[in-house]
């Protein structure tokens, strides 16, 4: 019963408002710790030199890009099954952050690729999958932007999201298959030959920081979306008057 109470926008809005600063604070703390480990504690890699340190950003970003899409699909499925508006709002609030992490993973991959492979872009299976994931995010956001009626935008986006999530493994498999046929095994960013314990810790701390950041940003964005949609209701009017 309690869960249903939090599914109501009027309850969720102030709760999210109280949570956002905490998650933001945690995100800042973990980022500071993670960056410290990545730059000062983790040893220099004997093969890849200092350049490898970009994996502390790249790997968590790549993880997040996949996770967020799956979390969005989870909210979309719940929204479609139980018709809970808050779930659609959560899926929608997560999308820009997911796209941002996907872009970040691509960007850092390119930065890493230049010294390692001698090229900004290599059609590596992981990078290619990330690129297609970015297209999926863009498609989702473009569809929602094109629909004026929020009810339709929610549902249409959720359906596309679910089709996408069914497809992600197939796309990943097909790209990997294509990659092995067309070129030999390439050096992979995530399969560094000697992954020191401290490197793993650095990545984990950065991944937690990314989670905290995602939660903070998604909650803040969800609050805005809710206020926009509920602006006709009494509680939202009261909130707007209070905050103005």
């Amino acid at each position: 019963m309690n869960l249903y109470r939090y599914a109501s926008p009027a309850t969720f809005y102030p709760l999210a408002g109280r949570l956002v600063p905490w998650f933001a604070l945690l995100a800042a703390a973990f980022t500071a710790a993670g960056l410290y480990i990545s730059f000062f504690v983790a040893p220099t890699d004997f093969q890849q030199g200092e350049g490898y340190r970009i994996i502390f950003i790249h790997v968590p970003a790549a993880w997040m890009s996949m996770f967020i899409y799956i979390v969005m699909a989870f909210w979309s499925a719940i929204g479609l099954a139980w018709n809970t508006r808050l779930s659609f709002v959560m899926a929608r609030a997560l999308a820009p952050t997911g796209a941002m992490f996907t872009f970040l993973a691509l960007w850092t991959g390119a930065l890493w690729g230049k010294p390692m492979w001698g090229a900004w872009w290599v059609w590596d299976a992981r990078l290619t999958s990330e690129l297609i994931l970015l297209f999926l995010y863009v498609g989702y956001m473009a569809l929602q932007a094109a629909i004026d009626d929020p009810r339709r935008a929610d549902r249409a986006g959720a359906l596309l999201n679910l089709v996408g999530v069914i497809n992600v493994p197939i796309i990943y498999f097909s790209v990997k298959w294509w990659n092995t046929l067309h070129q030999g095994a390439s050096v992979s960013l995530t399969r560094a030959p000697s992954m020191a314990q401290t490197m793993l810790w650095g990545m984990l701390v950065m991944a937690i920081a990314a989670w905290m950041y995602t939660i903070a940003v998604a909650l803040a964005r969800a609050r805005t979306l809710i206020l926009e949609r509920e602006r006709q209701t009494e509680w939202a009017r009261a909130v707007i008057k209070e905050e103005a």
């Binding site: 004026d148 009626d149 929020p150 009810r151 949609r229 509920e230 602006r231 006709q232």
Partner: peptide, 9 residues
């Protein structure tokens, strides 16, 4: 008890 909403109202 049918209700209908269009674009938030």
């Amino acid at each position: 008890d049918v209700a209908c909403e269009r674009s938030e109202h």
